[in-house]
Amino acid sequence: MSRTPAPGAVTDTARLFRDAADGDRGALWRLAEPGRQLDSNVIRLAPEAGVAGHVEPDLDVLVCVVGGSGWLETAGGSQQLAPGAVVWLPHGVRRSLAAGPDGLCYLTVHRRRPGLTIASAPAEHGGGEAACLLQLVCPGCGHLAQESGARFCSRCGEELPPR
C-alpha cells in the first residue's frame, strides 16, 4: 500500500538564491518526494553563463525566475528575464538561456520522466552490450542528453562529464 505524500512547502527559493555561494551553479534543489508526478529543480547559472540551444522533444517546461537576470532565446526572438517572470516552454521548441551579470536563478517544473532503462540490442542487430551512455547522463539531475555533442544538461544546466 503506497503512502500519499502530504502537501506543503518543499523549499524556499528566495533563501536558496540568497544563500547560494558565488561558485554555486547547477541544481541548488530538486523535488524528491516519493510518488510524485512532477519534477522540479531550482537552477543557478553563474554570471554570463548559459544553457546552449536545445529542444525538449517530449515535455512542456514551466520556468519561474527567482533571482538574477538573463535572456531567453527562441525562434520568436529574445526575451529579458527578471525575478517574477514565468515562462512556458512548449515541447518541441528550440530554446537557450543566458545569465546576466548577476547570474540567473530559476525554478523549472515539468511532468516527471519515466526512469531510464538500458537494454541489449536486438539479435538481428548483432546483439552484444548496449552502448555506454554515461557521458551523456547529467551528474546533477540524471537527465540523458539528446544530442551526442551536448556539453551541458538541457534540464538543469550542469556541465556533462568529459568525453
Results as ranks from 00 to 15, higher is better:
L116Q: 13
A123N: 06
T117F: 11
L89E: 11
G128R: 05
E129H: 12
Q79C: 04
L89T: 07
I43H: 05
S120P: 03
G70P: 02
V86D: 09
N41Y: 15
G50F: 04
T74K: 01
D58R: 14
P114N: 12
Y106V: 05
L89N: 11
A131W: 08
L107K: 13
P83E: 07
G127C: 01
V109E: 10
A75L: 06
A85N: 10
C64S: 13
G68F: 03
T74L: 03
V63E: 05
N41V: 14
H54F: 04
L104M: 03
E56T: 11
E48G: 09
H54K: 06
Q135W: 09
A99E: 01
L134H: 12
G127I: 04
G53L: 02
L107S: 15
D60A: 05
V61F: 09
P122N: 05
L81K: 08
G70C: 06
A52K: 13
E124Y: 13
H54N: 10
G67N: 05
G77I: 14
G103W: 01
C105G: 07
C64N: 08
Q135P: 08
L136Q: 10
G84D: 03
A131D: 12
G68M: 04
A82I: 03
G53C: 06
G128M: 10
E129Q: 08
E73W: 09
E73H: 14
G115H: 11
